[in-house]
């Protein structure tokens, strides 16, 4: 959020040439690091929110020109179409390995990976654990919506017990499908992981808390403290089979009781 006396800097405003009296009073708009394009996400999807919070953080920390992002495979695969800074793609799950390569070559850059639950907690489990364990000085933004959105709503490692998905049509059966994975808690025991926090985006208050967490994680990297990660509980109304408003309620009442919100580890 901008204070009312701040000068506006978004592309959006420049293009639309808002008259001066309006400009002076604009207190909230699209951050500079976010491209002024429509995103492909479904209505009520949490990805757009997290994209914006990353951009706001980058702008506020003044690091846009030295940030390098790594986009995942999953719904956020084309995140580079929405971010206005250097971004590379990565193979599914290998996002932290790619980020490691970039950061080791350019330690002065601010490197972050953006991953979903399939990317990070299933196919990329080895990479995330070992990247954290090496204490790589990177930031990971982990969006946990408990389902594979891109491929049609299959079970994710983080899908809750009993949750109906495309591959758990009668609900996740713990005997057949195993248990929901609390990867953040697993990572807490790693000495290389310095800052770990779980947040949510189901209400404005939680969005603001997520913003603070993301900023803290990036600051951890800027201060050379080591590996930082924020897990964000996000809505997937399409594959949860409910409205965005009910999806937000589900995080509040159900998801966040299994995946507790809060700082898991802080240096």
């Amino acid at each position: 959020m901008r204070k009312s006396n701040q000068k506006p800097v978004t592309r959006n405003q420049k293009k639309k040439k808002i008259n001066k009296s309006q400009v002076e009073n604009l207190i909230f708009s699209r951050p500079r690091s976010m491209r002024d394009v429509e995103m492909h996400y479904c209505a009520g999807c949490g990805h757009g929110l997290v994209h914006r919070l990353i951009c706001e953080t980058i702008d506020e920390l003044g690091i846009r020109e030295r940030t390098i992002g790594v986009a995942p495979v999953g719904c956020a695969v084309i995140a580079y179409d929405y971010w206005d800074f250097d971004v590379t793609e990565a193979a599914h799950g290998r996002t932290p390995a790619v980020a490691t390569g970039i950061k080791r070559v350019r330690p002065e850059s601010i490197v972050f990976s953006y991953q979903g639950d399939g990317d990070l907690a299933a196919i990329g489990t080895a990479e995330i654990i070992h990247t954290a364990n090496r204490g790589e000085n990177i930031t990971v933004i982990f969006v946990n919506n408990g389902v594979y959105g891109m491929t049609g709503g299959q079970m994710a490692p983080t899908t809750l017990a009993g949750q109906v998905t495309d591959t758990t049509v009668e609900g996740r059966n713990l005997k057949r499908d195993g248990y929901p994975l609390k990867i953040l808690e697993m990572m807490a025991v790693l000495p290389g992981a310095k800052y770990l926090e779980r947040t949510s985006v189901h209400s404005p208050q939680e969005v603001l808390r997520t913003k603070r967490a993301i900023k803290k994680a990036f600051q951890t990297q800027i201060d050379n403290r080591g590996f930082s990660m924020v897990e964000v509980l996000a809505m997937c109304p399409t594959y949860w089979g409910m409205s965005p408003i009910k999806s937000a309620d589900r995080i509040k009442n159900e998801v966040s009781t299994f995946y507790p919100i809060g700082v898991v580890k802080s240096y």
Partner: peptide
């Protein structure tokens, strides 16, 4: 230079991908 003993071959080639993205000979 940078040497990393990776956790797997998958990680190794993707670390090389990252290093190459950043402009290094890898």
């Amino acid at each position: 230079g940078v040497f990393i003993q990776s956790e797997s071959e998958l990680a190794a080639i993707n670390m090389v991908f990252g290093a190459s993205v950043a402009g290094a000979r890898a």
